[in-house]
């Protein structure tokens, strides 16, 4: 029971974060089509479930774009979800920590996003449903200048949106 309570707290925290950092994203805000409150995360076909129960992001070691086993496990879940919920497409956002020059970090974030895209395709998600963008070090989520923050910022986030024509 204790474990369950903590999960719920984490989930609420993650949702409110998503709501305040991405107010304009497709359905991202509370009351929108996706992630509309913690309750919908119980529904395994909901974007909220994708974001929190499966995990919408994977993390990378310093200056790497190779997927770790933990990242692959997360992406297996993402692929499975996308293969069921075909009305969604996704933009994969690659990011880097602040330890690097601006231009290189854009290119590094692109490698990370691409690694995720290729993995999802290898697990059956149509490439036409996936695109990528890199923000380099322009959009950190954690702001300290320590490894604890850097580790969270070296990420690729799979951001759901409506598939064309759905």
């Amino acid at each position: 029971m204790a474990h369950r309570a903590i999960s719920a707290l984490v989930l609420i925290g993650a949702l409110s974060l998503a709501a305040c950092t991405d107010p304009d994203r497709y359905g991202g805000g509370a009351g929108g089509g996706m992630g509309g409150g913690a309750g919908s995360a119980q529904n395994p076909n909901s974007p909220a479930y994708f974001q929190t129960a499966i995990g919408d992001r994977v993390l990378f070691p310093v200056d790497q774009s190779t997927l770790t086993p933990a990242a692959e496990a997360t992406l297996d879940g993402q692929a499975q979800w996308m293969n069921v919920n075909t009305s969604y497409a996704a933009t994969i956002e690659g990011h880097a920590d602040e330890q690097g020059t601006r231009e290189y970090n854009i290119a590094l974030g692109a490698r990370r996003a691409n690694a995720v895209q290729e993995y999802l395709i290898s697990r059956g998600v149509a490439g036409t449903r996936l695109d990528t963008v890199s923000y380099g070090k322009e959009r950190p989520i954690e702001i300290c200048s320590e490894e604890a923050c850097y580790a969270q910022n070296r990420r690729a986030v799979t951001v759901l949106r409506a598939a064309a024509g759905s």
Partner: peptide, 9 residues
């Protein structure tokens, strides 16, 4: 300039 396609720049 730089152009990135398929993760390669």
């Amino acid at each position: 300039y730089s152009e990135t396609r398929g993760g390669n720049t």
